[in-house]
Nucleic acid binder design. Structure first.
Lengths: 326, 326
DNA sequence: TACTTATGTGTAACCCGTTACACATTATTT
DNA sequence: AAATAATGTGTAACGGGTTACACATAAGTA
């Protein structure tokens, strides 16, 4: 692999001049530039970014921490980030945290050692103090970390309200909720939105809410319990799409027809919701857009710009499909 | 950020000694080691991997090129790789190629400039000559590139055979195939496996095969055509799970019951297949295992071991679910 | 014309680790 | 006791870029 010295020798100039041509800064005579360009071409020279990183203390690399790329919500998020960053000359290191603070710390350590220029983090557990210790630009995606770390997310409470209201509108009279895990802010907010709508209904009591773990299997179980305890439930708002799928399964196994006997709506708007039978109504998040803008903000931060807008809240859209058509 | 010099000063030794302690090589007196360890601890020193990379010409980083992380087959593949690598001290750069040779080249260029230690590649288009030019260890995953690049994949033809035979076994008499895109080796091989089974049936002719693009939407269309042209078809083998989902949709829209009127089987075994109604039979690949072993082989290669086994073919398992239960 | 400014190029220090080599001291072997 | 081997530690070169600084020349200005 050719080095800058090789190029300098070939073009009969100094390494400084080659560097100037490569980076297009400082004065370079037109003829000299040509010579260097020829040399670069002939030797197929590609500057060594490791050496550059060492000097510049930045690596043109960013890290993205997500809980689990295998969870259908995250690939699109990661894609939005990666697409923008590669175009801006950054590469993306993927980190699966499994929501484990220990792993998050480990990844952050590795990033710091590699002079990573910044990080995009999806985490419920991470603390602002931890991040401060690393002294690198960070943006929070999907979930907020602290009010002075730029955040890109949706209004979950509002989404929860819209979902619950939609079920009322299509004629549901008793609406259950499958809540996401405790202590997870997004899950809590979706639940609060649901509460905003149903709390003062005379039929409502806490038995209408069961807790799932954002995954399908467990959702099947808790939905079954919910439906068996109260035969009058004719609408379910699931805290995310995966659990809505579980609810669908549960209804099926209890011989309830969706949407005739019971309407179901999910949350997130992952592709999966179009593939089920019946197709799932859901509150769709602008995942790609959101993650792209998070990436843009991170790059701005890295380039030293001030990002004054800390809270970037994106709109959700209600997608009405068969599962709530009554 | 503390450097090795800071540590050396703090511990009143030379940088060489600190380096020896950090890397556990060379002779170091027990007391000296202690002093250095205290210094490392006190200053919270983390060696700078960029500087280390520059000297060692390796970065403890590998790249993984996949067509599109958004396609449900790939996240698990990536996860298998990442899980193993982080544990071995490597970080993983994610690259979405969209099967575009231009992007593949771009990513490979970036990898080379960053002294990436090796790459795991999922690609139909990449040429062995291109890879040779980069002079780094490479393993092929899911699809072979060249017979002397270690490959981790399944026997697609055999899988195609098993799928077609399963449809026969459950009583199908006319079996259609939704083939993956042309020129894609895996798609071709699955098709060949299907042919092995049905070619000599008296009912068979080329009209039983239609071509999809491995995605759902198009599969809906071509399946409709297929089923409308030949009302006798009572079994469909789709070239992958996503297309099987499309077939399911198509059957539904033609008011055909699955599996009573028509049995459907997919290929790959992605999680999605458990979530549909009816649940999809499929040929399951050991995705996680396969990708993990690919990562192991890459690390072996990087560490200079000889990997003599070039063709690593994993078994597929037939998963019988409702969609073929007759 | 004398002086300032713009242009053009090279030398060498620097980024932060790693390691070859030199040198010193202690332990082991004849 | 002398010779050899093992242990312990520091100095400095190196990896491949970037850039401050010095210096030289050409162009512009008073």
């Amino acid at each position: 692999m050719a080095t800058i010295k090789d190029v300098a020798q070939y073009a009969k100039v100094s390494v400084a001049t080659v560097s100037r041509v490569i980076n297009q800064n400082g004065y370079v005579n037109e003829d000299t530039r040509k010579k260097v360009e020829v040399a670069v071409e002939s030797l197929n020279y590609k500057p060594n970014s490791v050496a550059r990183s060492l000097f510049k203390k930045q690596s043109k690399t960013i890290g993205i921490i997500v809980p689990d790329i295998t969870n259908p919500y995250f690939p699109e998020l990661v894609r939005g980030v990666e697409d923008y960053l590669i175009q801006k000359g950054f590469t993306t290191i993927l980190c699966n945290s499994d929501e484990d603070p220990e792993k998050e710390r480990l990844y952050l350590d590795v990033m710091k050692q590699k002079y990573v220029d910044g990080a995009i983090i999806v985490s419920n557990t991470i603390e602002r103090e931890l991040i401060d210790g690393y002294d690198m630009p960070v943006v929070a995606l999907d979930r907020s970390i602290h009010h002075d770390i730029p955040t890109f997310a949706i209004d979950n409470r509002d989404g929860g309200r819209i979902a619950a209201e939609h079920l009322l509108e299509v004629g549901c009279t008793r609406i259950g909720h499958i809540k996401g895990p405790d202590k997870v802010e997004n899950a809590d907010n979706r639940y609060l939105g649901y509460l905003d709508v149903v709390m003062h209904k005379d039929w409502f009591h806490s038995g209408y809410v069961v807790e799932g773990n954002f995954d399908q299997k467990q959702a099947v179980e808790v939905t079954k319990e919910l439906l068996q305890n109260d035969r009058e439930i004719d609408g379910i708002f699931a805290g995310n799409d995966t659990m809505a799928l579980g609810a669908l399964k549960a209804a099926e196994s209890l011989n309830l027809n969706v949407p005739e006997d019971i309407a179901i709506i999910g949350f997130d708007g992952i592709d999966l919701t179009e593939m089920t039978k019946p197709e799932l109504s859901t509150l769709s998040q602008p995942i790609y857009q959101m993650s792209r803008e998070a990436a843009e903000a991170l790059v701005a931060l890295i380039e030293g710009e001030l990002v004054q807008e800390k809270e970037n809240i994106f709109p959700t859209t209600l997608i009405k499909r068969q599962s709530t058509k009554r």
